[in-house]
Design a binder for these strands. Structure first.
Lengths: 188, 188
DNA sequence: CGCCACTGAATGAACGTTCAATAGAGAGAG
DNA sequence: CTCTCTCTATTGAACGTTCATTCAGTGGCG
């Protein structure tokens, strides 16, 4: 269990980073929003950098959890793909802070400094899915990393467009989009 | 024509932001790298924010220029699409600083503050392409903004993966990827 | 002489981090 | 039940640093 204050600090940082970016989000502001003293943050995190790194791990965990919750054993590969795609997209739409944090993080100098071991554990889930589908001749023979990241970017992009309010996505559009991505990776 | 020092400041900022992020890139460092005094930056730009905003406009201009240079009147829509996709992807691979700057910028709080008028001018080019192709029944009927941003994200993603060195992209892979994206947007 | 690009030390504000002090929770003894 | 000792959680003022920005001054050109 994550201590209540620790969680408050994580959630507050997430919100503030979305609004103000990494710079523009001083520790004093995080403290104020989380309802704790500045010093308290340093009880839970070594430094601002550590806080941000942990935020990344925390967010990845939450996304994975949301996605797996919706999967059922009896789904075929295509159904499973649609469910994964839509679950993740909806998760980010419901948690815009996490979406913007993630996008900022992976393009920042923090990301390369992130322990590879953690990333690999997360990637493994999708890797297995892709490899099984390739063996069955359902998906194109393409480097799984390339495929995984193309899927990922389509999810993030769709969620961002929706949150911008420029294009409203309903069930129909989610399925349309998942279908588009599916068409791009499946063996024709 | 952009003054030589102004250009040096823009290019230096680009490089430093890639390595250190927006935070982590003090004006003094920009000045040093550009070979000018700190005060000189303020001769050309009102503030750090202005500098970053102009960097965005500058980068978009350079990308557009690189892409249009490769287009020929006699290409059909599919050829034109492939050329656009590959040109942009290669441009970012040859200019990683711009890739990382762009990705950081659009996910930062700067982006929403960017003059909409400028963005629309850039989007217009791709908008016209998509609308023509839709009228001819070649592309799916889908909101052009959604389609445009899906294409954009696939380009950025492919370039990033290549630059990471995780997956090496040659001519064959570029065409494979452009084909995948094409399959996702075309009327089947 | 006036104008302009340019300089870089100086300035003041903002920031991340520290730490001495305090509060509180729990354990053990009487 | 209460007093005391201990350890942890928490506080926020204070510190030293870093940063964006300023400006008085320099050099060169027309």
């Amino acid at each position: 269990m994550i201590a209540e204050k620790k969680k408050a600090i994580l959630e507050s940082t997430l919100k503030l980073i979305k609004e103000n970016g990494f710079h523009g989000t001083p520790m004093s502001m995080v403290a104020k929003k989380a309802g704790v003293a500045a010093g308290t943050i340093y009880h839970y995190f070594d430094s601002k950098d550590t806080l941000i790194m942990e935020l990344f791990v925390y967010t990845q965990y939450r996304v994975q959890e949301a996605m797996l919750k919706n999967l059922r054993e009896d789904m075929d590969l295509k159904e499973s793909f649609f469910m994964r795609w839509i679950s993740r997209c909806q998760f980010y739409i419901q948690n815009p802070d996490m979406l913007f944090f993630m996008e900022q993080f992976v393009n920042s100098p923090y990301y390369p400094r992130c322990p590879q071991e953690h990333n690999e554990r997360v990637q493994n889930e999708i890797k297995q899915f892709i490899e099984v589908a390739q063996q069955q001749g359902i998906l194109r023979e393409l480097d799984f990393k390339l495929m995984a990241i193309m899927i990922h970017s389509s999810i993030m992009t769709a969620a961002k467009v929706h949150l911008d309010g420029k294009v409203l996505l309903g069930d129909k559009e989610f399925n349309q989009l998942a279908q588009m991505v599916w068409d791009s990776i499946r063996e024709l």
